[in-house]
Nucleic acid binder design. Structure first.
Lengths: 191, 191
DNA sequence: GTCTATAGAAGGATAGAC
DNA sequence: GTCTATCCTTCTATAGAC
């Protein structure tokens, strides 16, 4: 049960960070959401909020990377998998009233110039996505350098589309970013 | 001098929001930065922080739109202007230690699911950028629907590249996003 | 009508009861 | 070793002195 509490804390903070960011989420809110008593936070995360925050970012980022892998894994055709992923992201936005987009983007922007430990956690996640994506694109026959470029452009398109879609409350940006990414990938596959 | 204080407050909050976001910036910090006494905030912005916040977003967004227009205005060749804008954004990131990117993106992600007034201010800015950009692209001979699509894809690429570049402390994402955007625009111009 | 002092709530963190 | 009660700080906002 003790290990369960730690997982619930990470789950709750992950959900709240995604919607409200790091600065906008209080530890009391996280504890209430997790149904955990106050002291348990400092039992499981001696470093307090920043400790929990860094581990939340790494965990949420890892899980989101897995989700991307489920849509565009080696067993499916690459361009079709990416197309499905963007379509799924647009659907999730609609279903959650534009709340659930990238789990770490808000935090990344908030901490990049003020909290080096948290910034590093975000950077580690993005680098893992880039490396994992590059390997997947190479498996489809795209040369390494081109694969890496395409992945970074795709992730940028996705993250920026999330910013626009959430603010505009429209899935149009995510859909258009998906189309652009798929087109680039198909061009690279045809080359 | 009174009007000057209001402008200084907007300037200070704009700078701080860009680096730390809305939630991470306290009104006392804004006042200290502007060299203004505490009461002046509520004199110029009766609604308090959210009042100042919304006006800051609209003003910062308007000014950033002007900057974009300076780089890619009607008097310069479109693709070259866009290329120069992304190069300038990368240069600014390097010069400011990856602090100065989009003035409203952090705020937009923070407030999109929690503060409707602020979210609307961000949406108004993004819509103005989209409309202004679409008009500029049409002037270069690109049909309306295609122009609008290209602008949204370009803005998404820019915003997402800022997220990655700030977290990774590398201008690579911004540079690659610029290349992708320029290539799309050149393809549309050639069609 | 400019500014200071303070209120009242919420923030993160800790000490210690059990 | 789980949880509660409390501490100190910081937050936004207001009241009122001058």
């Amino acid at each position: 049960m003790a290990g369960n509490t730690k997982e619930r804390l990470l789950d709750s903070s992950g959900e709240l960070f995604r919607r409200q960011g790091y600065m906008g989420t209080g530890v009391k809110q996280i504890l209430a959401e997790a149904g955990a008593p106050f002291g348990s936070l400092y039992h499981h995360f001696p470093g307090g909020k920043s400790d929990l925050g860094a581990e939340t970012v790494r965990r949420s980022g890892f899980l989101y990377g897995l989700l991307l892998g489920e849509f565009a894994g080696p067993e499916v055709e690459l361009a079709g998998g990416i197309r499905a992923f963007f379509a799924g992201a647009a659907g999730t936005l609609r279903e959650t009233d534009y709340a659930d987009a990238c789990p770490i983007a808000t935090v990344a922007l908030e901490v990049s110039s003020s909290d080096e430990e948290m910034r590093q956690a975000c950077a580690d996640v993005f680098n893992a996505w880039i490396e994992g994506g590059t390997a997947r694109f190479e498996l489809a026959g795209i040369p390494h350098a081109r694969a890496r470029t395409l992945v970074i452009q795709m992730l940028a398109a996705l993250e920026g589309a999330f910013v626009l879609s959430r603010a505009l409350r429209s899935t149009e940006p995510v859909e258009l970013a998906g189309e652009a990414s798929v087109a680039s990938i198909e061009a690279a596959l045809a080359a």
